[in-house]
Amino acid sequence: MEFLINLVLLLFLAAVTFAVIGVRNLFAVVILGGAYSFLMATLLIAMDAVDVGMTEAAVGAGVSTVLLLSALHLTNTEEAAARHSNVLPLALSLLTGAALIYGTWGLPDYGMADTAVNTYVGQQYLERSIPETTVPNVVTSVLASYRGYDTLGETTVIFTAGIGVLMLLRGRRPRKDKETSTGGDAT
């Protein structure tokens, strides 16, 4: 049953990908991107990664779709015709895809207990989380307690990204206004 669900979701993902390649209207591409994110979130939930699935649904399908739509509002919604031949990008994509598929042959089976991920440190976290922190959700105890430094770093990264976007997008507007409104106050 799980195999069937994964198969259907992956087929949908492939269909959406081909639709994104084929469609010229960028509005449709953004909406298809949102659909892709929702399918990906469902797939992550099917793989028991609920935390990641939740984030994917809210960020990938929700917020970033809206951000892309508001970016589209500022530009043209039709994709411009390609200036160069598509052969080289296509070959590069196919080559990268082939390399990635070749790489999956080296991966252990999904959910195997004796892989490097599930043995050394992972095993320690699972065994020690409840006695040491009494937090039943090990993801949270690893994220916020054992790896608190990393999460502090991540929060700082988000803060920095926000400030960066703010400076890039807002810093330019007064200058533009000055050019158009011949002197006067820019604000």
Binding site: V50, D51, M54, A58, V59, V135, P136, N137, A144
Partner: peptide, 14 residues
């Protein structure tokens, strides 16, 4: 977030 899936990041984006 201590007991089920989720936490600050997920709640923040929601």
């Amino acid at each position: 977030g201590d007991f089920g899936p989720g936490g600050g990041f997920q709640a923040g984006v929601i």
